[in-house]
Each structure stands twice: as C-alpha cells, then as structure tokens.
Simulated assay, not measured.
Amino acid sequence: MTKITIKNKGEAVALNYVDYGQGQAVVLIHGWPLSHKSWEKQMDALVSAGFRVIAYDRRGFGDSSAPWDGYTYDDLAADLDTLINELGLEEVILVGFSMGGGEVVRYLTNHGEQKIAKIALVSSIIPLVKQKADNPAGVPEKVLNEILTALKTDRLKFLTDFHQGFYNYSKAKPTVSAEQLTYDFSIASHAAPQATIKAAQAWMDTDFRKECAGIQVPTLIIHGDADATVPFDTAAKQAHELIKGSQLIAYPEASHGLNVTHAEQLNKDLIAFFKG
C-alpha cells in the first residue's frame, strides 16, 4: 500500500491506495462506510484480465487520514483528480460503487472527461437518494435523519444492522457468511466517526440529476433489483434514463452488496464492458 499527500483547503491529507497489474488503468472507488478492501473479489479478476487496478481509501476511511472537514463531493472528486494526476493516468476507467458513483459523476463535472475512457456505476447512489416531490421513489427524509441520529448516538449498533441490510441478510436467508458481516463491520467501525457522518450527509443530500444528463463517456450501470439500501427505481433506472447511451444491467433478486454476492457475474460484466 502507498500514500499520496493531497493539499486541500490548506490541510494535508494522506490518501492510501493499492496499485496492481499492468495495462489500461481501472480506478475502483469504494462505497460507504467501507474501504478499498471491499473490492477484494474484483481486483484479482481485473488484474488477471490485463488491467492495471488502482483502489484507494476515501479520506476518513480505511488507512487514509481523516481531516475534520472536506467530505463534500467537490472535495472527494478533487482527491480523485489528484490521484489520477499524481499517477499520470490517461484513458482511465472509473468504477464507483454506491457512494463512489458520486465521485465519478462529480469528477466528470468538475474536472472533465479528457482523461476518462469509460465509467461504471455499481449499486450506485446516482442520481439522487432523497425522496422529493419529483423523486417519489427516493428514501424519505425521515429515514435519512434517523440514520444520522443513529450514527451520532450509537454508531457501532447502526453499523451492525446496516451490513445485514447491505446483503438482505437474515438468519432464515443468510446471503453471506457471518464472517463476511464481521469483516465489513471491522472495516466500517474503524472509519473516523466524523467522516462516517459527513460522508453520509453528502450521499444523502447531493442531487446529481443535472450532472448525469451531461455525461458523454460510455457508461455501464449495474444494480440489484432487490437493493434495499439504494432502491433500483430511484437510482439505476433513473440514472439510465438520464445518461444518454448508458447500458443498464439489473441483477434479479440481488442486494446492494452484489460485489460480494454476485462477484463472478459482476467481474464478467465489467470486463466485457471494459474490453468492448
């Protein structure tokens, strides 16, 4: 693992990343509240398929440093831009999972498409999580406020429950192993508390609908139609309608954490899109 130092608003932030393989660069951007380790089942497959795979920890998560502020999507997209520039990447493929889809779209908005070949949005929050009059399928604001309250009062209890919902897990239907839930909890619980809360506010409140309409690069959208964390209709379906020429693949009965539960199929679909 390696770190680069990013200067943002006068504060130095150390961004942790891994860099494996050779070939066209694929940058993997993890979801909330995990780290680059959530891409474990994708990295080997992508490297073996002939790609250079770079996965990093969002500021405040994993082994990156955790400033008190700087968790807006503008800040996070600036971190991604610095990573791309520091590594001298061109013709990059960006893959954003869940919250990471926001970095992808905001990067294109703020920093342009010149260095980007393609993008993939996996279980992404794009374009808008929150329920509004013109987004009736979104998550009610009351539910989002309850999440913030739970994070502030008993973050660890919330994370335990959250990861079960991440996989639509129950004792009657154990979609992943108990060890997978423990692993996710370990990663998420060690994220900085302020980063966990402020990053959540970013994915809850940011409306990317206008930005999606301006995307020109080839786009793949993959989402589970049983995603209980980020509903299919308000996310993938709407993103597909907004992003001209995008390809949408729905995984039947798949949960939010399809990078784990449907890893083999996801890897095949990503590689086919990257090489297509």
Rank of each mutant, 00 (worst) to 15 (best):
D205G: 12
G101E: 07
K210G: 10
A137H: 08
K152E: 12
D63K: 02
K130L: 08
L15I: 07
G165M: 04
A12S: 13
S48C: 05
N145D: 12
G138T: 06
F166E: 05
M43H: 09
P174S: 07
G100I: 02
G165S: 10
H240R: 03
V217G: 04
L87G: 01
P231I: 03
K115L: 11
K198C: 05
K157E: 15
L270P: 02
S189R: 06
V26C: 00
A117G: 13
R59G: 01
Q265R: 13
T196H: 05
K173H: 14
I271T: 10
L270A: 06
I6E: 02
S65C: 07
A78W: 00
V27F: 01
K142D: 14
G112A: 14
F208A: 02
D205R: 12
N16P: 11
A199H: 07
T206M: 05
E146I: 12
T72R: 07
V122M: 05
K37G: 14
Q265C: 11
G276A: 02
L34M: 10
I243R: 02
K244H: 14
H262S: 13
I147S: 11
Q24W: 08
L270E: 02
A77F: 00
G50S: 07
A172Y: 12
M1Y: 15
A12I: 11
V18G: 10
D205P: 05
Q247L: 13
D134N: 15
E264T: 11
G50V: 03
H262L: 10
D79V: 03
A192I: 04
N85A: 10
P67S: 06
K152M: 11
Y251H: 09
K173G: 14
K198D: 02
K130C: 08
W39A: 01
D19N: 13
D225V: 08
A272G: 11
V95S: 01
E146K: 12
L181N: 09
I93D: 00
A213F: 09
A188T: 08
Q216F: 09
V122N: 01
V53R: 06
Y183M: 12
D134P: 13
T153D: 07
F208Y: 06
Y71A: 01
D19G: 06
A12Y: 10
T149V: 11
K130P: 06
A202D: 04
A213M: 09
Q180I: 10
A226F: 06
N259G: 10
K3G: 07
I126A: 04
N8I: 12
E86T: 14
E11L: 15
Y167F: 11
E264S: 13
S177Q: 08
K268I: 14
S65E: 01
G10I: 11
T160V: 12
S186E: 14
V92S: 04
A200L: 10
E11C: 15
V95D: 03
V18D: 12
P140G: 07
V143M: 15
G224R: 01
Q164G: 10
R58E: 06
L80F: 13
F162T: 00
F208I: 04
A254E: 04
E179C: 13
G88L: 06
Y56A: 08
T229H: 08
W203I: 09
G31D: 06
